[in-house]
């Protein structure tokens, strides 16, 4: 047992060479995309506030909501019935005038009514035709989900972009991935919103709706409708009082009676529609300005709005990925 160490002899190990480790590649913070992200965030946060997007979108929503009762099929049918009754009434008055050879000046209010009746009928028919024609596009716009929340979504995305870009530029590296994830989520939400909310279809319809309603939504049109209303309401009064004594045949009597009896309904429907038009002229003008916003960046009106959101959301997500800190490539 004691001879064993002698057989093996002394162990002479050579000096181990020093272990060398490759130096860690330094992390690089891409500044350009992070700064672009910061700028985008500022624009998205303050743009809607400075540009009045909240007010414009709220106005659009209010216009759509307030027109809703007038765009229903039964309301439009009632309006058409009102018009038909007015036509029959006007024809009845004409018939009595001709048959009885009533001189001009005996019923001055009805003289004026006879002069204006065809014009009033033409304008009312035109108004109803426009409202009816706008129906399908109106319904598509009304179907947009959460339209009045769009500015909030944009501002939220902007705030996330500002926060994320600050983390990427100045924050700790271990937070970078989390911040990028958050920004990608915000960008994706903005990009996906038009597809999830029917904004794409609704915005196209909205762009068509604006010129359809343009001749209706003016102060001059409201004033004209008010003048027509005054002529009608005073004529109705004359028909119910002084003109009652004038003899008439059955056809004329039926037309006049139908108009006079239906007058409360006719006047209510007409007053309600004129009121909604008058009270929404400002909202319409705001919606027109909203239509003009995408045009400033080279897109087509309201129809460009969904693509603007898709573009901005994608840019936010893309820039956040590009701004993620990464190792520098080794140089030889």
């Amino acid at each position: 047992m004691s001879a064993l160490p002698q057989i093996l002899g002394p162990l002479d190990l050579p000096q181990a060479p020093p272990v060398t480790r490759a130096a860690a590649t330094p992390m690089r913070r891409p500044k350009a995309p992070a700064l672009a992200l910061l700028a985008l965030g500022v624009v998205l946060t303050f743009g809607p506030i400075v540009g009045g997007l909240f007010a414009k979108v709220a106005s659009g929503k209010q216009l759509i909501d307030q027109f809703a009762p007038h765009m229903e099929a039964d309301a439009l049918a009632r309006d058409n019935t009102d018009l038909a009754r007015l036509r029959r009434g006007a024809a009845g008055v004409d018939g009595v005038y001709l048959r009885q050879r009533l001189p001009e000046g005996r019923f001055p209010i009805l003289d004026e009514y006879r002069r204006q009746a065809s014009g009033i009928d033409g304008r009312a028919t035109n108004l109803l035709d426009r409202v009816e024609a706008a129906g399908p596009d109106y319904r598509r716009v009304a179907a947009i989900g959460g339209f009045d929340r769009v500015p909030f979504l944009i501002v939220a995305c902007g705030l996330v972009a500002i926060y994320g870009s600050c983390v990427l530029l100045f924050g700790r590296r271990n937070r970078a991935r989390w911040a990028v994830g958050l920004m990608m989520l915000a960008g994706a939400a903005l990009s996906m919103y038009p597809f999830l909310s029917d904004l794409r279809t609704g915005a196209h319809a909205g762009e068509r709706l604006l010129p359809q309603l343009a001749p209706v939504m003016t102060r001059e049109n409201v004033r004209q409708l008010q003048r027509d209303f005054v002529v009608l309401v005073e004529a109705d009064g004359e028909l119910e009082t002084g003109f009652r004594k004038v003899p008439r045949n059955a056809t004329a009597a039926a037309g006049i009676t139908a108009m006079v009896n239906a007058w409360p309904t006719i006047s209510s429907d007409l007053a309600s529609l004129v009121g909604v038009i008058n009270d929404n002229i400002h909202n319409y003008n705001e919606l027109e300005q909203l239509d003009a916003l995408p045009r400033r960046v080279g897109l087509s009106g309201l129809a460009g709005l969904p693509w603007l959101l898709v573009g901005v959301g994608s840019a936010c997500a893309g820039l956040s990925v590009a701004a993620l800190p990464r190792r520098r490539k080794e140089t030889r």
Binding site: A58, S59, D148, S268, D279
Partner: peptide, 24 residues
């Protein structure tokens, strides 16, 4: 009148009918 209301006061109330964003 006829399912419509008209403020006919003096002085006139300042209207509160303008469109508002949610939460405004």
């Amino acid at each position: 009148w006829n399912k419509q209301n008209f403020n006919q006061g003096a002085p006139k109330p300042v209207p509160n009918t303008a469109a508002k964003a949610p939460g405004q």
